[in-house]
Amino acid sequence: MANITKTDLVKNVAQKTEMSKKDVAIVLDGLTEEIMNEVAKKNKVQLIGFGTFEAHHRNARKGRNPQSGEEIEIPATEVPVFKAGKAFKESVKN
């Protein structure tokens, strides 16, 4: 199992689309920035077949400091969540 970096992704997409690596990097940066901006505004970003990006509320809860064992209060927060679409799930499954 290998890790794919952004550089690898840009190179692979450039080869498939016959676009320059520079242009693919610009598109990828724009895409990821737009997804982050929309999710930060609590909007759902849905790419049919690929998946959905959205923000979820995580309630405040009690936790423990792993070093001291002391009980601590973990504040409520918003976290980004990705849910894979049907086509994505099927491609991983096979």
Rank of each mutant, 00 (worst) to 15 (best):
I72K: 13
K22M: 12
F50Q: 11
P75T: 11
E33V: 09
V39M: 02
T32R: 08
S20D: 13
V79E: 04
N37K: 15
K42Q: 05
N3D: 03
V92F: 03
M36L: 05
Q67W: 01
E70W: 00
A14L: 11
R61N: 05
N59D: 04
E73A: 11
R64S: 02
A55G: 06
R64Q: 07
K86A: 05
V10F: 08
P80M: 12
P66L: 00
K22L: 08
N43D: 10
V79I: 13
E34G: 11
V10S: 15
K62R: 12
A25D: 15
A76Q: 12
E70G: 12
A2P: 06
A55V: 02
D23F: 07
G63K: 11
T5V: 11
K86T: 07
K16I: 02
S91D: 08
T5Q: 13
N59V: 06
I48D: 04
Q46K: 12
N43I: 03
A87E: 10
N65L: 03
E54W: 00
V27A: 14
K93E: 06
P75F: 04
T7L: 13
G49V: 01
A55P: 06
T7M: 09
K44S: 06
M1F: 00
K93L: 02
L47Q: 05
N65D: 08
Q15I: 09
A55Q: 10
K41N: 14
G85C: 11
